[in-house]
């Protein structure tokens, strides 16, 4: 028995040093999430990403694995966000005619939406007694992870907290966004995509692309433009107020 458990230990140590284990665990967790999502009849609140994150956190806590070791192992998936962002140019190109026709409407809606997101998140957190650290991490939450982390860092917030808030925002937007748009009766694919991409960056865009290419293209465009607008405007506005 002794040697059995020590050889299991050696096996675990060997596997937990390589990316293979963490990549596999992440894929399994995501597929469990997808399975439950399908099983639920695609209920928006049964979000595959959320389920995967909860499962992985549980596994890491139970096995006493530090987050850094997991992240190094699963880093390849995180890296692929870069090439996936570049590939968003494809749906955007296919829908370019429609985008060009409504360029001014896009610019106005996007800048307004972006300001609403940043200002309301800070005001609400402030009114409910949040700390300055949390406002700074909340303000860029609608912007895709690498940019928002950079903005938070420049303003003096907590980048790793921002990354998490950005992802929760993405899950919220992707899962509840369509319902909100139905309630306020926004029907065109262009407007629906733009709204989700402005508020919920890549996670919202990923969901839109699965539903409709036009919505996906507007969403991807909104995600890119909002990253640009927030990165330039938020620090200026912040220093101007404080």
């Amino acid at each position: 028995m002794q040697s059995m458990s020590s050889s299991l230990n050696a096996l675990w140590n060997h596997l937990s040093d390589s990316p293979l284990l963490y990549l596999t665990l992440t894929l399994i967790a995501y597929q469990i999430g997808l399975f439950l999502y399908q099983k639920s009849g695609k209920k928006p609140l049964v979000n595959p990403v959320l389920i995967a994150i909860v499962l992985l956190v549980a596994v890491l806590l139970i096995t006493g694995t530090p987050y850094d070791r997991y992240f190094q192992g699963a880093h390849f998936l995180h890296f692929l966000l870069g090439p996936a962002t570049v590939a968003l140019a494809i749906p955007l190109y296919r829908q370019f005619e429609k985008v060009r026709k409504s360029a001014l409407a896009i610019a106005i809606s996007l800048l307004t939406g972006s300001a609403v997101s940043a200002v309301s998140s800070v005001l609400i957190a402030w009114a409910l007694g949040g700390s300055e650290q949390s406002f700074l991490s909340l303000a860029p939450k609608s912007v895709t992870t690498p940019v928002s982390m950079g903005i938070t860092e420049a303003l003096g917030g907590v980048p790793s907290l921002t990354a998490v808030l950005v992802i929760i925002t993405g899950i919220l937007g992707a899962s509840l966004g369509p319902t909100v748009l139905n309630i306020v009766r926004v029907k065109s694919w262009a407007a629906r995509g733009l709204a989700i991409g402005t508020a919920a960056h890549g996670l919202g865009t990923a969901r839109k692309l699965q539903v409709n290419e036009e919505a996906g293209a507007f969403s991807g465009l909104a995600m890119g433009l909002n990253a640009l607008a927030t990165a330039i405007l938020l620090p200026i506005v912040w220093y101007w107020i404080f």
């Binding site: 987050y67 990354a163 890549g202």
Partner: peptide, 13 residues
């Protein structure tokens, strides 16, 4: 694409 956000999201811990 949503799969790719998981590693950063686990940072919630």
């Amino acid at each position: 694409m949503s799969l790719l956000f998981i590693p950063a999201g686990v940072g919630i811990m």
